[in-house]
């Protein structure tokens, strides 16, 4: 009954459908990149450098004559990888820290909140620099280091929400019924914090992709010839007056993905909330 209602709501929710369609196209493109892309992402052809978008090259070519269309298609894999990794780390760390600190309070809360504030104060670039200096540049390391400092916002939100929910009568009733702490957290508190978690995460996703871009720009993350959208974008900046398409198309791809993810998140929040 209730599952049926959820599907029905999903089918009626325009935001969710639009978001899902946008997101699914990115996903499909990423999965079938080898088949869709007309060229390899690192296939150079210096004679054909700076060809504007047209019939031969849909999105034009860059300074090495690489097909931008193909590069962006391959880049979607990197974008999704970054996004999903960041979301996974942010949710798992942020939500658990927030729930534990908010629910148990006291000393545990003090310790966890201290760690949260400490992490919050940590500049992501410095952390990434430190990690990369020790371990050597790589996209994964940059992504992980970015995610490791991006969870405090989520943790704080979840903590304050948890604190307000844990004193609601329905939670007290649950305790009086003999529910265990774990069960109360999982069954009563977590579902009621889901809304803000989803929205927060989807809002932060584009930021996460962009911040790894910045680090790639500094030479810490993706290395050329990687088709990382951020990398293409930053490389294109040098030719922005001569060949603006080099930076426009990765930008559009980023916006497309971000909007898709956002709409899906907002829609999902409404669908999962029985009050809407």
């Amino acid at each position: 009954m209730s599952r049926k209602r959820t599907y029905l709501k999903a089918a009626k929710n325009g935001m969710f459908i639009t978001g899902t369609v946008l997101f699914l196209t990115v996903l499909l493109v990423a999965v079938f990149a080898d088949r869709i892309a007309p060229h390899k992402y690192d296939e150079m052809n210096i004679e054909k450098a700076f060809i504007p978008p047209g019939r031969a090259y849909l999105f034009g070519t860059d300074e090495f004559g690489r097909c931008l269309f193909s590069r962006i298609i391959y880049g979607s894999r990197i974008a999704l990888k970054i996004g999903l990794m960041v979301v996974a780390i942010q949710i798992s760390v942020g939500v658990s820290v927030g729930l534990l600190a908010g629910y148990f309070g006291g000393k545990l809360d003090m310790i966890l909140s201290f760690i949260t504030d400490l992490t919050w104060a940590m500049p992501p670039v410095v952390l990434s620099l430190a990690i990369v200096t020790v371990l050597g540049p790589s996209l994964e390391r940059v992504v992980v280091s970015t995610a490791l400092v991006s969870w405090p916002g989520c943790a704080r939100m979840v903590r304050s929400k948890t604190q307000s929910i844990k004193n609601m009568p329905f939670v007290e009733a649950a305790r009086a019924l003999g529910e265990s702490d774990l069960s109360i957290i999982v069954r009563y508190i977590l579902p009621n914090t889901l809304g803000i978690v989803i929205v927060l995460t989807t809002l932060q996703l584009p930021g996460a992709i962009l911040s790894t871009t910045g680090l790639s720009f500094l030479g810490l993350g993706s290395q050329p010839p990687s088709p990382d959208w951020g990398l293409i974008l930053s490389e294109g900046v040098n030719y922005v007056s001569k060949a603006p398409w080099i930076s426009i198309f990765p930008g559009l791809a980023l916006i497309y993905t971000a909007v898709g993810f956002n709409l899906m998140g907002e829609g999902l929040r409404d669908i999962l909330d029985p009050r809407t």
């Binding site: 209730s2 009568p169 329905f170 009563y188 579902p191 009621n192 009050r275």
Partner: peptide, 16 residues
């Protein structure tokens, strides 16, 4: 058994 004052927040809003 226990029954609370505020009926609106006495039941988990996420379940039937």
């Amino acid at each position: 058994g226990i029954v609370f004052q505020d009926p609106a927040s006495s039941l988990n809003p996420r379940v039937t």
